[in-house]
Design a protein around this nucleic acid. Sequence first.
DNA 1: TCAAAAGTGTTCGTTTTACACCCATGT
DNA 2: ACATGGGTGTAAAACGAACACTTTTGA
Lengths: 221, 221
Amino acid sequence: MTQNSTYYSSQNSFLVAVDCVIFGFKDNKIRLLVHKRAFEPAVGGLSLMGGFVSENESVLQSAIRVLSNLTSLKNIYMEQVAVYGEINRDPGARVVSCAFYALIDISAHDESLLVQNNAFWVNINKSYELIFDHPQMVEDALKILRNKAAIQPIGFNLMPDKFTLPQLQSLYEAIYDQALDKRNFRKKIQSMDFLVKLKEVDKSSSKKGAFYYQFKDIIKD
Amino acid sequence: MTQNSTYYSSQNSFLVAVDCVIFGFKDNKIRLLVHKRAFEPAVGGLSLMGGFVSENESVLQSAIRVLSNLTSLKNIYMEQVAVYGEINRDPGARVVSCAFYALIDISAHDESLLVQNNAFWVNINKSYELIFDHPQMVEDALKILRNKAAIQPIGFNLMPDKFTLPQLQSLYEAIYDQALDKRNFRKKIQSMDFLVKLKEVDKSSSKKGAFYYQFKDIIKD
DNA sequence: TCAAAAGTGTTCGTTTTACACCCATGT
DNA sequence: ACATGGGTGTAAAACGAACACTTTTGA
């Protein structure tokens, strides 16, 4: 066990990848950003957006790069899901992949970049088939998302700048995939004290109109 | 973006390590297994037990190998903490490390192996200084442990086969680093219904004696 | 005037917290 | 007989779940 610094150089090295589980929210459904894979193996298969970590960036930076190349978004908050390190998880090579997830405002990004990358949004409750262990990554990310949503405001990035309480409720209903009671939801949200009510109302979805709200502050874990 | 399989081979590869955050429980304190590092850089510094992932094993297997080499324990349940991927986190080389944590019965492992590896237990609440980003790994692991303990029985591995309720309470008190009410603790534990009361009592710490209990079943997440 | 969505409180059961005394025994 | 740690129940508070009616307004 006594070695000098050549100890490092005697070790195996591996490709290290990142895969991004990108959630968005549209038409009251949680959406997942996927793309058609452009190279072998599994060319044409549905895949999470990913990439390889390069020398001059941290693993997290790498995930942020992948996502911002795809969406042109900056200042994205990404969080780790887990590492996927099975030997044959990628049939093309031994690749250790680290999954990250992010929540983005589906309307705020650059549509044309998605098209360029053969990327599109799928409804998370509908069926679709991802390659490799990507389904596991999505499942793990959803689990984290659900746990998180119970404790603290998510929705920063999933919601547009101004939104109504019925819209926010739809988001939570989509995350948990179940209907919530309007009064209990509002009570809970208001007790958490992270929203500011605006004077403006949104009449796009009702005659009466619903008040707009904004997040008070960015609260990051 | 259209590539063939040489796409893989054009990428950087990295050393991938595992670091093990090993918790034990002794004298009513949570202990952490650390060792004196045997090679540069930071030779002699306090470090988590770690190692490099090799070609013929998954990342998880690698962590299990490291831990079982050190303790001779088999069938250890390890869980991921996170990936640590900053560029300069290890001054010796670019190393992406994946931390795992485990809970082990401190009395059940092979003491002499620890000595051979310059390894020993430190009290987690006392001060000690770990190298690199290992303090962060420990902190992150503790956070996970605390969250988990609230929901489901941990302690399988931290406790000996038979244990008393006061002992188990001490474990929880150590995990949360705060005193718990005896009656509330017992009520909660009993409502979770995972213990079996034995007829035998432990008189080692009181005159009256405390009943031994065992875990009913292995319940894994 | 009516259809459609927004908004608003109360009750009930469950869970969590706080709290104090008796028991068994070895010395 | 007494000191030591083991064991037990109850009341108050906080929290989560269930539930129905009024308001506004555009068509």
